[in-house]
C-alpha cells in the first residue's frame, strides 16, 4: 500500500502574517508543509509521499487571499486564493481566459473551492493545469522568506517534478499577471481520457496578440504541460507565429514545432508517442481557440 494511508501526527499553526509564516517554515528546518487548499498536500501526506511535523496554514494571511484586478494594472492573485473565486470573478475570467480554462478543471467543484493557483504552482507537477497559462501570461512570482522578499518570473519557478526554486523558509505570497490588451487572446486545453476528474496526459496553453488590422500575429507564446519534467515554453513554435497570419495552416505548423519541445515519459497515463502527438494537437487547438476569442471579443 502507498504508505500509511493516514496522516502522521503533526502540529498545526495558522499565522496571520507572512513574516510569522516564513519564520515558522524556516525554524521547522524542512519538516514543515505549507497548507493552502490542501488538495494535494493532504493526499501526499496521507500517502506517505511527504512527511511533516508542522503544517502551516496560510489561509489566515490576508495578502495570500487577494484577488485584485484592474484593466490597466493586471491581476494580483494571492497564493491561497481558491480557484473557485478566480472562476467566478467575471472580469478576471474575461481578461485571462486561459487561466480560467485551467482553474475550472482542476478537480471538481469541491476541489476548486479549496485549491489555489499558487498551490498548484508550488506543487510543481509537470501536469499542473494552471502552470502553462501562467507561463504564457508571463506571470511573476512574489516570494517571501526570512531574509525578505524577491520576485522571479514564473518560467524560473519549477525546476523538476515536484521541485521548485523556493529556498528553505521561503513561500509564495502572490502572483501578478500583466494587463491584457483587447487584441490579445488565450486558451488552455488538456487531454484526459474522461471529461473531468483526471490528470492531464498532455496540455497546452496559447496566447497571441494581433496587430491593429487583426490579420497578423504580433506576438505569441505557447506552453506545454505533462510532456517534460516541468511545464515548458515552446519558444520556437511561438517565434514561428510572429508576423504570420492567424490561419489553421500556421497553427498546425506551430503545433508541429511545439512537438519538438516535448520530451515526455511513458506511464499509465500515456505513451511517449501519444503525448508528443497530443502536444501538437493541443497547441493547434488552443491557438485556434485563442484566435477565435480575439475575434469574438
Amino acid at each position: 500500500m502507498g504508505g500509511l494511508t493516514t496522516l502522521s501526527g503533526f502540529e498545526y499553526v495558522a499565522p496571520t502574517d507572512l513574516a510569522a509564516a516564513a519564520t515558522a517554515l524556516r525554524d521547522a528546518g524542512g519538516r514543515a508543509c505549507v497548507l493552502a487548499g490542501g488538495t494535494d498536500i493532504l493526499v501526499q501526506l496521507r500517502e506517505g509521499m511527504r512527511a511533516a511535523d508542522l503544517v502551516i496554514d496560510v489561509k489566515k494571511i490576508p495578502e495570500l487571499l487577494q484577488l485584485d484586478y484592474a484593466t490597466d494594472s493586471g491581476l494580483c492573485l494571492g497564493a491561497a486564493t481558491p480557484c473557485y473565486q478566480v472562476n467566478t470573478t467575471a472580469d478576471v475570467a474575461e481578461a485571462y481566459p486561459a487561466l480560467v480554462d485551467a482553474t475550472r478543471i482542476i478537480g471538481g467543484w469541491q476541489i476548486q473551492s479549496r485549491a489555489s493557483v499558487g498551490g498548484n504552482l508550488c506543487n510543481s507537477s509537470p501536469a499542473a493545469d494552471s502552470i502553462p497559462p501562467l507561463l504564457v501570461y508571463q506571470a511573476v512570482c512574489h516570494l517571501a522568506g526570512p531574509e525578505g522578499r524577491r520576485s522571479i518570473p514564473v518560467h524560473e519557478f519549477c525546476t523538476a517534478p515536484g521541485q521548485n526554486s523556493l529556498q528553505p523558509g521561503e513561500l509564495l505570497a502572490t502572483l501578478t499577471l500583466p494587463p491584457q490588451s483587447a487584441s490579445a487572446g488565450s486558451a488552455y486545453q488538456r487531454f484526459i481520457p474522461r471529461n473531468e476528474m483526471d490528470i492531464a496526459v498532455a496540455s497546452a496553453a496559447s496566447w497571441m496578440e494581433l496587430d491593429d488590422s487583426g490579420s497578423t500575429i504580433q506576438s505569441a507564446r505557447i506552453a506545454l504541460g505533462a510532456v517534460a519534467p516541468t511545464p515548458v515554453l515552446a519558444e520556437e513554435a511561438s517565434q514561428f507565429l510572429v508576423g504570420k497570419a492567424p490561419t489553421e495552416e500556421n497553427f498546425a505548423a506551430a503545433g508541429a514545432l511545439a512537438r519538438q519541445v516535448a520530451s515526455p515519459i511513458d506511464d499509465m497515463r500515456g505513451t511517449v508517442e501519444f503525448r508528443v502527438h497530443l502536444a501538437g494537437v493541443l497547441t493547434q487547438r488552443t491557438l485556434a481557440l485563442a484566435h477565435r476569442r480575439i475575434q469574438e471579443s
Partner: peptide
Amino acid sequence: CNNGNCGACTVMLNGLPVDSCLVLAVE
C-alpha cells in the same frame, strides 16, 4: 475514497462544497 476523488464526503464550508476528507478539522 479519502482522497478527494469521489465526493461522497461533500459538505458545504462557508457556503461552498468541499470534500471534507481534504479539510483538516482544525481548519
